[in-house]
Design a protein around this nucleic acid. Sequence first.
DNA 1: AGACACCCTGGAGTAACTACAGGGTCAAGG
DNA 2: CCTTGACCCTGTAGTTACTCCAGGGTGTCT
Lengths: 148, 148
Amino acid sequence: MKIGDLAKRAGCTVETVRYYEREGLLPRPERGANNYRLYDASHLETLCFVRNCRALEMSLAEIGTLLRLKGMSGQDCGEVNTILDEHIDHVAERLAQLHQLQEQLVSLRRLCSRIESVESCAILRELAESPEGDCPARPAGPHVRGAH
Amino acid sequence: MKIGDLAKRAGCTVETVRYYEREGLLPRPERGANNYRLYDASHLETLCFVRNCRALEMSLAEIGTLLRLKGMSGQDCGEVNTILDEHIDHVAERLAQLHQLQEQLVSLRRLCSRIESVESCAILRELAESPEGDCPARPAGPHVRGAH
DNA sequence: AGACACCCTGGAGTAACTACAGGGTCAAGG
DNA sequence: CCTTGACCCTGTAGTTACTCCAGGGTGTCT
């Protein structure tokens, strides 16, 4: 099958397919007399593998490692499990970080309930504060320490 | 003050300060006879503003807009609130997405509890599945549809 | 005079694509 | 036979928000 068919079946663009080939995630396929790439079912499987991993937001480096492990028959899948566990931890950390961020944003947003002038807007004032009392432009205002 | 002092007070690197200047977020400061940049308190305030916004993961484009609004005295802060609301929505969407991702990852991980060969590992099999039954390499295996 | 810390400019590198520009190939229709 | 349109090719540049040099100048201390 040609690159357009492959891409459609895997749900990505032809540019992405060529990109994966350049990055070494997809083996270089045969070429027809017209220099078109010609793919078979195993290419499709590999591409689906990559796209599924990307949908789970793994990095291409992680996916490359998984593909190498997948190809080493006789090997056990302990490393696969480890990579997945690490990725799960990574996502958990990012989730915690975003939760905290969301709280900070919401409490910042509450500082200005009604429309005021930009000079008196407590949001803008809060955002101009220095990390450790170092921004001397506005000496000391009402300000939500602990919110961030 | 010199760029190193400014950067230290705002908690960032000198490269980042110069980058913000290039991007138009920080006004071009005066230069000394030695061509060194010379900053004052208002530069520090602006830099703190940018860094605080970045800590809240706003984009530099959003921050630029906020800075322009902040500078237009006489203006009301309705647009500021709108930008913040949109950013909060954006973070909320990302949070929901990551929650779903985490569930998918955990149920994928459960497919392989003990160490097996890479040929039989259900994680690797699941990851090779096509989006719509299109990957014909392994005709039909036990497989957790609905997990993703 | 030398060592060291700081400053300058300009350019390359990061992740994972996306979007061309400029060209070739192929099948169908007029 | 010619054209149109859909596909394919290579190679390069752009995206975000920095980070990290290379190669050079400046300022202070000993």
